[in-house]
Design a protein around this nucleic acid. Structure first.
Length: 422
DNA sequence: TCTGGGGTCCTAGGACCC
DNA sequence: TCTGGGGTCCTAGGACCC
């Protein structure tokens, strides 16, 4: 039977902020989404105050001021770099690591004799090297490792490490009975509602369901979850990150926009970013989607949302080829008279650049243009994003996002390094 | 005034073909 | 007058995740 561990950093974004700013120690802290819109991370102190996840910031402004809650805009440059350090440490400790998200990794612990001891070693090393506290959950399937991680965080008596195999069946069943089915990885709001209506309330209830019956009624995904909860590993382990099948760049605007010109600048910016990501994984794409939306929360406004697909004449990674398609899509989808709130670009039908079919009639990207793109990417990488850009992104900056409280990029920017005074 | 962004996978249903 | 049905492919949309 395989053994998986899930290592998950506690309050990751909030922790990253606290590591570099001593004035934030013991202070309740929230980190905001792009545009300073929602609360996406809370420090332990902020959780104790009862600030919920994903709450709109404007509803909590007064509360935060009253309780001395520190507020930070998100600083993905910093979190991304800390995440890479965390991953590097895990890879030193264990040969098989799957990076699952910015603050979580699955590890395969087959062959380790004492997996709980290994869990504690991982925890201590991360704490010592980068001051990140994490929880470790261990189990015979990914779903159980996830659930074990949840227990590790909720029950301090386990010291941050919980292994399903480390307790008796009776103890584990009692734990499963004490959590609602919605806590399980893969069971979201809609499913838990339907499950509850069928009398399946707790994790234990779900684990005891007949997988075939679940498949019929709820689909193949939940049937897998049920089997995973019983210790049967159905979700595979992926050490090597697969190239993305879809690349998205989108963002809401700081204020509503009504003019084509501003939105065109924003779409142009997103297209450039997405194309850069596409080239970074050495891919080409065949579909360019442009989406534009009004603000769905403003019910008094007329609503409009549109996603327009424009196929490319040939698979490409050339910004100018993609841009032409995106602009054609935008012209098709843009309707004057609405108050637009968000736009974005999705690249689809992605394939490997060097595996392209080159039969007699197929066209491919111009190699000269591709060298130019490579040069542009390299300059932007070393001199800062957006140093070189296509002209249309500059036609308007009305769409630029808010980030009023961003911390310095302590670990990746020479002039933003933390300074220590002796 | 102000409500995230970036992904994956599955499924239902339409289009098309014979 | 009676006007098929089954298979396959594709896409949009929905569910989930962090």
């Amino acid at each position: 039977m395989p053994t998986y561990a899930l290592v998950d950093a506690n309050n990751f974004y909030a922790t990253c902020e606290k590591i570099f700013d001593p004035s934030l120690v013991d202070v309740p802290l929230v980190v905001l989404s792009n545009n300073d819109g929602c609360i996406v991370a809370r420090s332990a102190e902020a959780k104790i105050l009862g600030i919920p996840m994903a709450a709109p910031m404007h509803q909590w402004k007064g509360f935060c001021a009253k309780h001395g809650v520190a507020i930070k805009s998100s600083n993905y440059t910093l979190y991304g770099d800390m995440s890479a350090r965390m991953l590097a440490i895990l890879q030193k400790l264990c040969p098989e690591v799957e990076s699952y998200s910015i603050d979580e990794s699955f590890l395969k612990l087959d062959g380790f004799s004492d997996v709980t001891a290994m869990g504690h070693e991982i925890r201590q090393t991360l704490q010592q090297h980068i001051k990140v506290t994490c929880g470790v959950g261990i189990g015979p399937s990914k779903t159980l490792a996830k659930f074990a991680n949840h227990i590790a965080k909720k029950h301090p008596e386990y010291g941050g490490v919980f292994s399903v195999q480390g307790v008796t069946e009776a103890v584990f069943e009692k734990l499963m009975a004490s959590y609602s089915a919605g806590e399980v990885w893969g069971v979201g709001r809609q499913l838990s509602k339907r499950l509850a209506a069928d009398g399946i309330e707790t994790v234990l209830d779900l684990s005891r369901c007949d997988a075939k019956a679940i498949h019929q009624r709820y689909g193949v995904v939940l049937a897998k979850t049920v089997r995973e909860l019983r210790g049967e590993a159905c979700i595979s382990f992926e050490d090597i990150a697969a190239p993305k099948q879809q690349i998205i760049s989108s963002r809401s605007f700081a204020t509503c926009l009504i003019d084509f010109q501003s939105i065109r600048a924003a779409v142009s910016h997103h297209l450039s970013r997405a194309a850069e990501k596409l080239r970074a994984q050495n891919s080409v794409c065949s579909h360019v989607y442009v989406m534009i939306n009004t603000n769905r929360f403003r019910e008094q406004d007329p609503q409009y949302r549109q996603t327009i697909l424009t196929p490319l004449p040939h698979p490409s990674a050339d910004t100018s080829v993609l841009m032409k398609a995106a602009m054609a899509g935008l012209r098709k989808g843009f309707v004057a008279g609405f108050r637009y709130h968000k736009c974005g670009v999705i690249l689809g039908e992605i394939g490997q650049a060097d595996g392209q079919q080159t039969d007699l009639f197929a066209t491919v990207d111009d190699p000269k243009r591709l060298r130019l793109m490579g040069l542009m990417d390299s300059i932007n990488k070393h001199q800062g994003a957006g140093t070189l850009h296509v002209a249309s992104t500059q036609l308007s900056d009305a769409w630029h996002m808010r980030a009023n409280n961003r911390s310095p990029r302590y670990t990746t920017c020479w002039n933003e390094f933390p300074v220590a005074y002796a």
